[in-house]
Design a binder for these strands. Sequence first.
DNA 1: ACGTTTGGCACAAACGATTGCGCAGCATCA
DNA 2: TGATGCTGCGCAATCGTTTGTGCCAAACGT
Lengths: 350, 350
Amino acid sequence: MSLPHLDRSGRPTLRTVAELAGVHVSTVSRALSDSPSANERSGSQRTIARIREIAAEVGFERNPHGSGLRTSRSSLLGVLVPRLSDVVLATIYEGIEDSARARGYQTFVVNGRDEPAIRRERLQMLLARRVDGIVLGDAHGDADELAATLAERGTPFVLTNRHSAAHVSVTCDDLLGGRLAAEHLLDLGHTALAVVAGEPYASTGRDRTAGFLQVCAERGVEVPPERIVHAQFDVDGGRGAAGALLASPAPPTGMFVVNDFAAIGAMGAARAAGLTVGTDVAIVGYNDIPLASQLPVPLTSVASPMHEMGVRAAETLIAAIDGRPVESLRLPPTLSVRESSTGVLEPTTL
Amino acid sequence: MSLPHLDRSGRPTLRTVAELAGVHVSTVSRALSDSPSANERSGSQRTIARIREIAAEVGFERNPHGSGLRTSRSSLLGVLVPRLSDVVLATIYEGIEDSARARGYQTFVVNGRDEPAIRRERLQMLLARRVDGIVLGDAHGDADELAATLAERGTPFVLTNRHSAAHVSVTCDDLLGGRLAAEHLLDLGHTALAVVAGEPYASTGRDRTAGFLQVCAERGVEVPPERIVHAQFDVDGGRGAAGALLASPAPPTGMFVVNDFAAIGAMGAARAAGLTVGTDVAIVGYNDIPLASQLPVPLTSVASPMHEMGVRAAETLIAAIDGRPVESLRLPPTLSVRESSTGVLEPTTL
DNA sequence: ACGTTTGGCACAAACGATTGCGCAGCATCA
DNA sequence: TGATGCTGCGCAATCGTTTGTGCCAAACGT
């Protein structure tokens, strides 16, 4: 059959449905709206049902340009992350996506690559697209420029993964995570401890390190400054840093590496130094990525609730968009103990 | 300073700039257009320069809703992938993003999770958003429903990563990749070979396996059917499949695992079986993810040009959108030889 | 000096959806 | 009977941008 008044690309518009139903477009608009207020202003239940039926039949889908133009809302949530090829951020993003979609929003994600210029440019792009709000997954330092810009501008936003200053954020309680790691290593009897901290601009690495050192101090174990080294959040970074630590005159017997990939690198460095991971040197990572349990020597790691972090971040952002009061959230991590810190437990691992 | 005629959210519009410049909005629109045809119809070079200056000064950014409504183009490329937390797809996506952005498009990515219902729904969403074209990174089988839908509907699209039927695609030459793996293992003298193939619906796994078997046949080495097992593209899948192979009465000495994560699982299974990877059993993976070279036993892997695949896919899609003729592209992989197949070469790995 | 071209811009009509307002018709109530 | 209220829907303006058409003046040719 041929439909009346299709748009340029052959898709039905409100008017198509209206003519088919014999009513005015405004009636169709109201009937198809899911806001109850618009709905009650519209016609009888019978008419509404009929309109919806026809709309479904012809496959009508509201044109977001028309709708966005009129309402100045896009139903779009911008998401800025360092990079999606990092499984941690990709998992957080999946949480954001799930939650946003369930609430009628779509997500628009961009990679900021932890480069200030790129981040700025990408954020600009999101704003130019008129997103309704922004999830910032890559805050830098405690006075993040972008967060400040957004706050000043009044665009709703929420930080996740990393936090920054007093802005609303949904993160893992990394301080607690660091504490868990320290308690574990200390309970195992280690006193020669080291930390492979992350990039200085990421609150994650800073907090994890701080928590770790807190517990050490509380228990009277000193971690000298030269045993705390900064490294990139990847395999190479971890290997380099751990290699240097292990090559020092008094090498550590317990290492906390604030990122699993870096921890994998650290394990490599240990092996290269002729040490057996788990017995000669205990290594604890962070995030508990799926791979951690599958390594030749399974990695002890602080498990952060990545997916849930994304879910809650999106929820919080939407609350902010709706004008509801919001506050920061710190989700608790747990420790997954494996052989990289305890040594081989059961040789019968299939 | 207070600007004339801002929009509801306080942002400058064409009219803001027009009033500031003392010209009509249409003149501003043309002056700011980057299409040369519109440009020449617009005013003098002096006027154009002045308008651009004012626009930059007040931070004007074209409202995509208004523009999209008028032109029925969104400058948006939809991207459908199985999941972004898979580093292979995430890397391809980064290529798409880089290339699209350089050509004035933004990308809108969604996860289809390899579930038909979800894929359909996500595609629907992209179309509802009026994307200008679609990159399909998750084609299923040789008669992919979504690809067929798009073709019928006339929406420009291109497949990548996986191909399907006669649709235009930009992929890795996986057949060649499989051949490289076979040649390598045969050159090393192995004759008891096995393949951990992927999910049957993915062309990647099918082609890789087929190429591998081609070379085996050419060289007169038989790979019995029970030595070809299907598994998921992840660590668990690889471990299970390889474990079964190695536990058989006549275990293989050379294994081709069509995905690096699965290969990592296979290495685990080998170790669990008391075998030394690289000497007792040679393992070759696929994709050469960054982690491959960093494993305790570095993994020999067929390197696929993931980023370039994304770049070329986006280029191809944009060509199709512009109505230029396009054709499929098969990018050649290379082999990265490491210890997982050759045994430990140099004990002096730092 | 008088048409004719052309450069430089303005006018106005769209695109598709939303929403305040208003207007019939009917029922209710005094 | 007339005032009032409600139900059910239509009217029309509006969002910001693009683009076909038209107009005025200056430049040009003869």
